[in-house]
Each structure stands twice: as C-alpha cells, then as structure tokens.
Design a protein around this nucleic acid. Structure first.
Lengths: 385, 385
DNA sequence: CACTCTTGGAGAAACGTATCTCCACAGACC
DNA sequence: GGTCTGTGGAGATACGTTTCTCCAAGAGTG
C-alpha cells in the first residue's frame, strides 16, 4: 500500500461509488501523493513531464473536477466579481432597464471572463441576504449615490470596489466615468451651430452623478450664453413619466426650439410629443438624446444620439478592479499583492484615482442645420441602415 | 483560559490585527465555543435567548462576517446559479443583445435573489477556464442546441440544469418554453383576418428550437391553407443582416402583403424597407414582429408585436431550478433532498418534465384590418404612449 | 570518501465553517 | 438514594484544496 493510498484510506466503506472523485482519489489511482496531483494539475512544483501527464490522464479518466469551494477557501480567491447598480429609484431591479446598463454589463462580463473572472449580479439593497453568502474578490458599483452605505460596508469588509460614475463620498478603490460636462457642452454647442435659439433639457429627478453633472453643465451653459433655462425633470426609472415630461416640455409657453434628453427613451418620447404638436424635426425642433440604442438610426427622422460608450466603460471598470484584486499596478507591473493583501490597499489617503472617458456624438438628421426643404420621407439608398 | 480560547489559541502571534475576525474570535470574545457561536448565529441548536443575543452582539461588535467559501465547502451549497446562452452564433457574448434576453435575465435574477440565490453569467463555450472555478448549485441554460456538450458536462458533474427552450437531446432536469407553434398559428390567423392574402416570414438560419419550431409552424400552415411559402432566412446574430433580409423579402416578385418577423429588430427593419419601396403600413403591408421592446408602441405606425413574456419565463425557470436544487417537489412539498442528493435526481428515465407557457399578441396599428383611410399621422390623445 | 546540489515527491498544516457526538449538570420521579 | 430526562454547550471531525517544509536518493565535485 502506498503512502498516498494510506492518506486517502479513511473514507467510509459505504456507498463510495456515489461520491464525486476528489483529489485524494486521483492520488490513490495514480499512485502518487496529493501534493503531486495538485502540482501536476496546476502546473506547479518540479515534476517530470511523464508524471505530470500521467496524473492528468488519471484525473481525466476519473472525471475529476477540483472543488471550487475548497480552492476558494484555501487561496482566498473566488474568481467572482459583484456587479450592482444602485440608483434609478427603489425598484428591486432596474438593471438592464436601459440599453446602457445592458451594454455595459455585457462588456464587463466579457472583460471579466477574459481574465478568468465571472460576474455576479447583485442588488444594491437587501443587506446580508445574499451579499454575505458570496465570496467576492471585488465589486463593480454602477452610479453609487453619495455616502453609499453599501460601498462603505464593502470597504469595511475589505472588498475592493471600482465604481462606474464618479463617487460622491465613498471609499472606492478607483472609479471611471464619462466626461459628462464636456459631453453636454458639446451637444449644446452643436445645437447652437445648427441654429437653435432656445435649447431645452429633459432631465431626471434623481441625485446620481450623471443627472447632476449633466444638469449643472446645462445650467452653467445657460448662464454663460444668457439663455433662460428651459427644462423638465422626471423620475427616470418610470418609463411612462418620460412621455409626460416630454409633452410638458413642448407644451410650455417658452417652448424650446431644440431639446436634449438625458435618457434613452427620450428620443421616441420627444418625437411622439413633437408629432402631437405638429412640430417638424428638425425644421421646427432640433433633437438630441443620450442613447445606446440603434433604433434611432431608423426612426423618422433618424435622431442624433450621444453615446456614453458603455462597452469601453465596462471593460475599463473591470480591468481596473482586477488589477486591484491581483495587485498589479498597470503602470509599473509591480506585484503588490505579495506585499499587502488587496483589502488594505484602498486605505490610501487622498481621493481615489479616477479616469474620465470621452463620449461620442452620433450626428443624424434630427440635428441637421435647418434647411427650407421638408424632411418627410427623404430618399435614402437601401443599403443605409 | 476557557476551552474556547484554547481552541483558538493556535493563531500565530504576528499581525493578528490585520486578520478578519473569524468564528473562533467571536467564540473567544464571547467566552463560548465555536459550536455555540455557529448555532447562535444560524438559529440552530438549543440555546437560551440570552446566550444567543449575547453571541450575536459580540459578533456584530467584531464585525464578524462568516466566510462564504468555508460555508460552501462545508454545506455543499454555494447559493450560486449559472446563467448561460448558447445559441445565436459564435459571438463570445450575444447576451442581452436582444431585449428578450435582457428581460429574461432580469426576471431570473430577481427571482433568484428572492429565494436567496445569485446569478452568475457564464459563456457557453470556454470549457474549464471559468466554469470549473465556480461552485454552482445549478444552471439555467437558454436555448441549448441539440446534444449540447455543455449540458452533458454539467449533467455528468451532477449540476441540475433547467433550460429555457425545449431541449433537443440533452439531459436537463426540466425545461420551460413558449408554445411557439400556437403563437405562430395565432399570428397567421390574425393576419389573415386582417385581410392578408400572402403572408411572408422573416426567419433565422440558426438551428435553435425557437427558430425551428416557428418556421415549421409557418410551413405547416402554408401547406394547410395552400399558400406558397414566402420567406427569407438570415443569421439572426448579425444586426446588419436583418435589414438586408427585410429588403430582399420585399423585393421579391411574389412580394407578400403581410410579414411576420421572428426577431426583435425586424420591426424597424421591415418598416424601413417598406418605406424604401413606398409601401404603406398597414394599407399595403401588414406587419407583426416578435419583440419585447416598447419602441414599437411609438413607431409610425405602431407595430403589432408578439411578446414571449420573458419575465414569466425567467421567473419560472429559476423557480424550477431552485426547487430541484433544494429537492422540493412543488406539487407535493416533499423534501426529496434528504433522501437523494440533487445530483442524482436528473437520472430518471423518460423525457424531462417541461412546461409550455403562452405568449401574448399586442395588436397595434400595423396589423389593423385594411380600411380606405390613410394612417399617416393619425390623431392620438397625448396620454397614449 | 565526504560534501553539496538537484530532482522528485511525501507529509502535514492550514483555510473557516457546520454538525455529529457526547458530557455535565440539575431537577423530577419512584 | 438512584435513575431518568431535558438543557446547555464543549470537542472533534470533515469538507477538499493549496502550499510550506522537509526528506531521500542520485549526481556531481573536491
């Protein structure tokens, strides 16, 4: 009897065929020790290729699958990253409500998988019900509100957090955001150049960074160019409220001749409202909205959209987080993890490092400079989508 | 020195303040044993309320969080459910590409969270890179192809699998699907009643159940009513291909006077194609497409859509899976898990149990019975969205 | 020959929890 | 007084890995 067989000999005699093969069974079958099996399968240790391949072959034959739980317990790494969205109302799950989140989540998932991690979608609320039961290596938080208790809790637990959206007052490890101010100013300039005299804004009532920064940029611009602000705010998480707000905006006595809508559905909302009031786009009303959906390429007329490039954001956020988890400083390539466990590296003083990413304005017919001819049913070649 | 302190006394002397509090620390601080702490926090064992609350208070004070990895290792339950989509091309992640998946995933996530589970989004390919590293209690598979190797592998690993979409030849624990045949027949009848003489189909080239069953239902209907089939198939995962296929369909010499599009973007595709050929909807062309998006409520004209009710599907799939994991038979309430570990309950003979769920046709202007008056800019009250 | 390296690999200690087993003790009962 | 019963809780083990430590044996070296 080999030492390995001895080491695994304590299994109870009954119903062994029901058990899944463990590393001990592989060791026994291959006539080597547990250490050797582990090293062989993980490419570690000093083993001749012959032993390595033999162990691998035995493991394959037994259908051995290492226990993720045991590995996580031992190594302290689960390969799991939490993804949570905190704003946009009290709904349990507004997630993927808008194309932005869907795209961002998709890119984040891909990026994580590419580096050997998987994403777990979690709610921002409901404290220990689920959060406490999952071993997370880190968390991506979308749009954390000021003083987000969830982020604080995670920080206390030692879980690295990277946020999409500049954090108000949260101890995040790092953050990524669009340059919302530059984006709004760019759109307002674009509309002005297209002939707009009075630009309105369709905005939200929530206090997340996106809404706040965008609105502030608009108000600042109004102050600078001397235009009276014309805007309507509504709860962005309520899809029906957007149509009503769009209607209100166009029903005002000081009706704007151009509108920027901050949220994805605002394009169709505003277009429908314009039709109701007999306004032609872009002749009577210039339109831009923030959206990732390509339905606006096929509307009548096509609508100019601002893309926040969610794919780029999602990828960046995840890569930053995994860098923090693994302790690699992307700049230097130094492996910090060997010196300090990751959970203590968020404790730096000073603001967390952030990255501003540019947006992209996709100009379509709805914001073309005014011309005398009508835009109803313009002839377009069949190839254009 | 208490026995509890003795039991935890083997911690190395250095840098203890850096360690997170474990159950041993709580036991030592409360002057009780590990057993007592575990029982107190989990509501088990026979303990007086006084001890229970004291232990809880100490745990709270130390900021104790149980290790999910250790718990998973010990109990064999991770509270994690995999979610994967396998069809629609070779793309690494077509997930949330269409509103159906996004909605379904959202509902599934909510349902899982409601029962204390979290969802992990995983790719259908890339064998052991990620799948092997995660302890899953079960998996939801969307639209598995025939003989899906992934499902077979999961079955062999003992992981319960519930699929969205009737499985071709896979050992799933259970499945849920829409009644696609009934849905298509319903639409074709609806279009006929609206005055259609020749109904066309925009379908896909992939071999998943949805595409196959829908197309077969269409062909069967054509055979029964004696209409020559008029359809175009394209790779559904390619967004640009849909517009081209729609164009092809309307360019045919035997151009249909009504079209049903199987995929979400087909509505805008077909509408744009109709405009290019000067066809009025619904006067010259009746239109229905399968979509979960509400943009079709605001198009010009609004388009009739078939909803697959993804929320209901997602909820049902997850609940079935969790029932299987926890060994509760929804019908009887018997706890099977105590008799057989869940991984052996998929081995029954006969086909796996399946559930067919109804769809819903949301009728809008694009499939209204033909009338002499034009439908361009019909007057609508502002409240309607 | 005595010694150091190098190679190949075994042993055992964690990781942190849940839970099974069992014991001490106090009161009840005959 | 002795047995029984219920209460409260301690001890120890197992979950399945990874990894640190260390040993044996052969190869080279003076």
């Amino acid at each position: 009897m080999t030492a390995a067989a001895n080491q695994s000999g304590r299994r109870p005699t009954t119903s062994r065929r029901l058990e899944r093969a463990g590393i001990r069974d592989v060791a026994a079958a291959a006539g080597v020790s547990i250490t050797t099996v582990s090293d062989a399968l993980n490419g570690k240790g000093r083993l001749p290729d012959e032993t390595r391949s033999r162990v691998r072959e035995v493991a394959e034959r037994l259908g051995y699958r290492p226990s993720a739980a045991a590995r996580t317990l031992r190594t302290g790494r689960s390969g799991l990253i939490g993804l949570t969205v905190t704003t946009y109302g009290e709904e349990p799950f507004t997630f993927t409500e808008f194309a932005y989140f869907a795209e961002m989540a998709r890119a984040a998932t891909s990026a994580a998988l590419g580096r050997g991690y998987a994403l777990v979608v979690l709610p921002a609320s409901s404290r220990h019900d689920v959060w406490g039961n999952i071993a997370l290596d880190g968390t991506v938080v979308i749009d954390p509100p000021d003083q987000d208790p969830l982020v604080s809790e995670l920080y206390r637990s030692g879980v690295p957090v990277v946020s999409d959206g500049k954090p108000g007052n949260c101890p995040v490890t790092a953050w990524v955001d669009n340059d919302h101010e530059a984006a709004v100013l760019g759109i307002l300039d674009h509309l002005s150049e297209a002939g707009a005299r009075r630009i309105g804004l369709l905005t939200g009532t929530s206090t997340d960074t996106y809404t706040r920064l965008s609105t502030e940029a608009y108000l600042g611009w109004c102050g600078k160019v001397g235009q009276e602000p014309v805007y309507e705010a509504y709860p962005a998480h309520d899809p029906a409220a957007g149509a009503v707000a769009a209607d209100r905006l166009l029903a005002r006595p000081d009706r704007p001749d151009a509108v920027y809508g901050l949220f994805d559905p605002n394009g169709t909302d505003l277009l429908a409202a314009a039709r109701r009031y007999g306004l032609r786009v872009p002749d009577d009303l210039l339109l831009v909205c923030c959206s990732e959906s390509d339905v606006y390429a096929a509307t009548e007329p096509p609508i100019t959209t601002l893309s926040l490039k969610p794919r780029r954001i999602g990828t960046t956020v995840v890569n930053l987080l995994i860098d923090a988890i693994e302790g690699v400083d992307s700049g230097t390539g130094v492996d910090i993890a060997r010196l300090f466990p990751p959970r203590f590296r968020t404790a730096g003083n000073g603001p967390p490092p952030g990255t501003l990413m540019p947006t992209e304005l996709i100009v379509r017919a709805s914001s073309q400079p005014r011309s005398p001819r009508t835009t109803i049913n313009p002839p377009r070649p069949p190839g254009e989508v």
